[in-house]
Design a protein around this nucleic acid. Structure first.
Lengths: 235, 235
DNA sequence: CGCGTTTCAATCGTCATACGAATCAGGGGG
DNA sequence: CCCCCTGATTCGTATGACGATTGAAACGCG
């Protein structure tokens, strides 16, 4: 066991450089040269270049001849990139990231639920109902870890069943947010009864094809989440 | 003149490979080898690798030793990547992409407007009012090109003023959608009177700090957009 | 002294080549 | 019949070299 995950070298470089930039250890305008990266990590030009190339595609940096690799102003960053989101959630600015993502969830998930009620396949409706039932059971039993997994599956299913690929593309992000919320103890020790009922309502409305109720119910869920994340007394 | 834009080689490779994969010319499961890319484009391994590396970071492909570079199933793609969005808007699947993006707009922009009413700086409120006025004027004058520019600026401002970086990160996407809508003639030759009034209402509500009205007004705007894009008679 | 031009050096961009590592397939041995 | 070993394929990484780009300093001219 414990064979340290075979990682490529550029992944390791990226895994240091990315979080460092995302976490603000380098400020916009700071300059890295390829040579410095090579030396700092003891890697070849090839590896350094590939790592930088990826950072560039996330628009964390720009590279120009004679100047080097310059850190980009934050507002140009590709904030939807899952890697970047993970880096930011792991470092400082985690709370801010969690809040902005939660606002995004609040905007998107009700719409996704409505569309899911219209577009879901029979199979998806059935699975949603099933996951909803198990969610309810583990919630009432207070099994938080299992609840988290099911919660992630639940919301992922809704986003997927919406039939909108952009919505579906957010499932990983939602998973990160849910996980982060649990890890940072922004979750009540036992899921609230109200939340459980709302999840059940979302599932049944989607199963029944009732877009309006599905949307309202989901709005209720995310409203609670927004409140929890915004609550200053928990930080 | 006509000095062909100095582009790096990997950008050119990427500019062919990316759209090709995004446009479905390679199917999920298809395999490219680095060697084939080298030969096809007449470039060195370095260049081929860097292009592939970027594709990998968008999750269009995965690479494994002995196997090669394999095209990933669509649902794993990083659909929020601006590059990918542009590639898809440029090729086939353009309509589908336009529709899914519009649904995303419809979900996000009302929330953004509401938050903007709360969080916008004085300067942003003023600029929004100003842009709103000019939007109205060019709209009534029927100057479509100028209207498009102002419309892009308007929606970008709202997203930015929301103070939520995720929302702000969508301004480029919204710009693409608005442009695409005009290019594909999903816009009425003269902007509708109702849309103009709603834009004005959004601007004034945000300026006045009225989140509720700003949200409702924006909802009115995007509802019209959804209808226009969904309208089958225009395709 | 001011300003445009030239020179220079730093850094990226690209290439060719070589070797190691991972992985899958198939053959040989138990 | 199963397991292990061997080999082939492809990526992963390193190295050294040269050209291209560009910003800044040095230079020369008015």
């Amino acid at each position: 066991m414990a064979v340290p995950d075979r990682q490529t070298l550029h992944d390791r470089v990226l895994g240091v450089l990315g979080p460092a930039i995302a976490g603000g250890e380098y400020r916009p305008g700071d300059v890295l040269t390829l040579e410095r990266i090579e030396q700092q990590f003891g890697v070849s030009r090839t590896v350094a270049r590939e790592a930088v190339r990826v950072l560039e595609s996330i628009q964390l940096v720009v590279t120009r001849p004679r100047t080097g690799v310059t850190v980009t102003p934050t507002e140009r960053w590709n904030v939807f990139d899952p890697q970047l989101i993970r880096w930011r959630l792991a470092g400082r600015g985690r709370d801010a990231q969690l809040r902005s993502l939660t606002a995004l969830r609040a905007a998107v998930e009700p719409a996704a639920a409505a569309q899911a009620a219209v577009n879901a396949t029979d199979d998806q409706r059935a699975r949603l109902a099933e996951v909803g039932r198990r969610l309810d059971a583990t919630g009432r039993a207070g099994e938080l870890d299992k609840f988290l997994d099911l919660d992630i599956e639940f919301h992922g299913l809704v986003l997927l069943a919406s039939g909108n690929e952009m919505f579906a593309g957010l499932s990983d992000v939602v998973a990160e947010v849910l996980t982060g919320r649990t890890v940072h103890h922004l979750m009540p020790p036992t899921p609230e009864e109200k939340a459980l009922r709302l999840h059940a309502l979302v599932a049944s409305s989607i199963a029944a094809g009732d877009a309006e109720v599905a949307e309202v119910a989901m709005r209720g869920i995310v409203a609670e989440v927004v409140a929890a994340v915004a609550d200053p007394e928990l930080r």
